[in-house]
Each structure stands twice: as structure tokens, then as C-alpha cells.
Nucleic acid binder design. Structure first.
Lengths: 169, 169
DNA sequence: AATATATGTCATGATTGCTGACATATATTC
DNA sequence: GAATATATGTCAGCAATCATGACATATATT
């Protein structure tokens, strides 16, 4: 390989020469996968984004609606732990979803300080509508995949997560 | 399955009853995969975020540094097409990266209106430093996976993308 | 010479994250 | 019962990153 950044002898060089060789995959670094994750996630969230824009909601609302529908009765603390955002960040979107009738709060039956979160029928409809194009996309991506590959993809995605997302976090 | 939202007869009900049944996977909707994608992407970008925070850069800088290192000589238009953002959004981060000496611009040799983008040595170092923890995470997620599964994951991620990211977009 | 293209820039606004501070209601502990 | 801890809400302000629209400049193309 030719050297790229040797300064030209005797000439004043205000900046070093830039690199022209592409960064390629190596033994240890798989740039292809890194890019695939970027592109696939970008497109994966684009469908819901388009739907949400009509209601004046954003991606943050999507996450809240999704998890409350998946875990009705979860508390605000549970939600903060799942989303890993601050309560002030959550407060804005949660308030909008409650005011718009997508989510309801109920005081916890044992611990009345808690606010348990439940979807309304409208909230459930929205969660399903948002999941629908994402599911179609996933099904398309799995087209023709063996059961082993499908399980392998799930294992891969699980393995990408930080360890121990347990309560004791 | 029990009905959940039948109004109680004869009593004034200011709000319909919220739903308490979790939204589960169905034939057509795989909520598990939807969540796995959310969690895995969130954690996938967390490592670079931590590194970038030290330099005062953000996720947007990461993307620019990554793609310019992968495709030295790409034009501003190429980059806009890849990132799918507006030139005004790109302008800020690109300017910062140029001013800080991570990226250089050169007028196109044939078309002098173009600004071809190249990484500096510093820019390449940054790209590699950012890719390193992501690669370790990917390797960990692939631990023990067969060649078929590895190929299957790549195919899955490719299939998740919108069709034809070609020039004719 | 007129028009199109690639890029840069200015102004402005929305969303979504953050921090710090403080308030309220309820549980727990001394 | 008083003190303290916890779950939640809220106010004020800051920052990053996306967006839109309008306009400027240099260079290509017709």
C-alpha cells in the first residue's frame, strides 16, 4: 500500500494530506454490521414516525404507548427504568398522552403513591396501528429464513443489549 | 376472554374502563422483535455516545465521521442522501468537524462546485475508536453463532431497510 | 446569456433529551 | 406521633438535532 500522508519535501504544507483509503472491515471490526444496524433502525422507525406526525405525536410518545400497552399497570418508575430517561422528559409526553385520552392513571391499590398506567381503547388502537407496519417490515426481512435463523436473530438482538436490565439496576 | 370495557349499568362513568390485558404477540405482530430492536439499538449507540461526549460531539457527528471514513471523497450531496437529513442539519455538525480538524474538504476535480469530503488522520482515529466498542458488542452478540446464523442476521438487517437506496432515489 | 446545480448560510421552530429545585401525598421508621 | 424516605408532579432553563423557507455564491450546462 502506498503511503498517503508523507509531507512533500521542501514545500510548506498548511494541512496534512487527508486520507483517501476507505475504512474497510477487519478481523475485529465489522463496519458492515454497524451500518446495517444504522440503516435498518432508521427505516424501522420511519413508518411509525409518519403515522405519529398526523396526531402531533413523536417517537417518545410511541415508546410510552408501546410499553404501557405491553405492560398495563406498570408504574411511572417502571416506565422510567425501561426507557432510561428522566422523569422530566417523560412527564411532557405522558401528560399529553393522558390529556389526549390514550393513557389513564390509577393510584396503586397497595401503595397509593404509585400511578399505575393503563391504555385506553384508543391507546390500544394506536399501539396496534404503529406496530403494524413495523411487523410487516420484520416479516419481509425474515422472508424465507429458517427457524434457526429466526431464533439466531433474536439471540443476536438480545446479546446486543447491556447485561442485567433487572430491577436491581 | 372476558370483556373489559362494558360500562357499569346505571352508573355514571366519566371515563371508559382502561384495558388491563397486556398486548401479546400474535400471528402477524411480533412485539418481542420490536422491543429487541429498540433495546439493542439504544445500547448499541450508548458506547459511542459516551466517547463523543468527551469531545463535545454528538451522535450526528458520529454518523458523519463514520461515513466519510468509509467513503473518502464522497460529496456533501452523497452524505445528505445517506443520512437522509437536510443540508441545514448537516451544515452545523460538518462545520464543527472541519473546524476541529477531523474532516477536510476539497473541490471536486471535475466538478468544482462539489465539496469532496475526506477524513484527516485524527478523523480516522476517531472513527476507529467509536467503532471499537460497537464491534466488541457485536462480537459478543454473535458469540457461538453459526455461519448460517451470522449470514441470516445480515440478511435480516438488510431486509429491514427500505428498498432501493440507489442514486435514482 | 440564461438557467440549473452544488453548496453555504441566516432565521426560526419543534422535539426530546438534560439538570436543579421544590411541592405533595403517602409509607415507613424511630 | 414525628421524622424521614419514597413516588410522583411541576417549574424553569439549557442543549442537541432534526425541520422549513429564503436567499447567496460559484460553477456547469444549455
Amino acid at each position: 500500500m502506498a503511503r498517503q500522508s508523507s509531507p512533500k519535501a521542501g514545500r510548506r504544507e498548511p494541512r496534512p494530506e487527508p486520507l483517501t483509503k476507505p475504512l474497510e472491515n477487519t478481523e475485529t471490526i465489522d463496519f458492515d454490521i454497524i451500518e446495517l444496524l444504522f440503516f435498518s433502525y432508521r427505516d424501522f422507525v420511519s413508518d411509525p414516525d409518519a403515522i405519529l406526525a398526523k396526531s402531533g405525536f413523536g417517537r417518545a410518545h410511541h415508546r410510552v404507548v408501546h410499553f404501557v400497552n405491553r405492560n398495563p399497570g406498570m408504574t411511572v418508575a417502571d416506565l422510567l427504568d425501561t426507557l432510561k430517561i428522566t422523569k422530566q422528559s417523560l412527564a411532557r409526553v405522558l401528560k399529553q398522552l393522558i390529556d389526549s385520552g390514550y393513557i389513564q392513571q390509577k393510584a396503586g391499590p397497595e401503595d397509593r403513591r404509585q400511578r399505575k398506567l393503563y391504555p385506553t381503547a384508543t391507546g390500544r388502537d394506536l399501539a396496534l396501528a404503529l406496530a403494524e407496519p413495523q411487523s410487516r417490515r420484520i416479516e419481509r426481512a425474515f422472508d424465507g429464513a429458517s427457524a434457526e435463523v429466526r431464533a439466531g436473530v433474536k439471540a443476536f438482538l438480545s446479546g446486543m443489549q447491556n447485561r442485567q436490565n433487572s430491577k436491581a439496576d
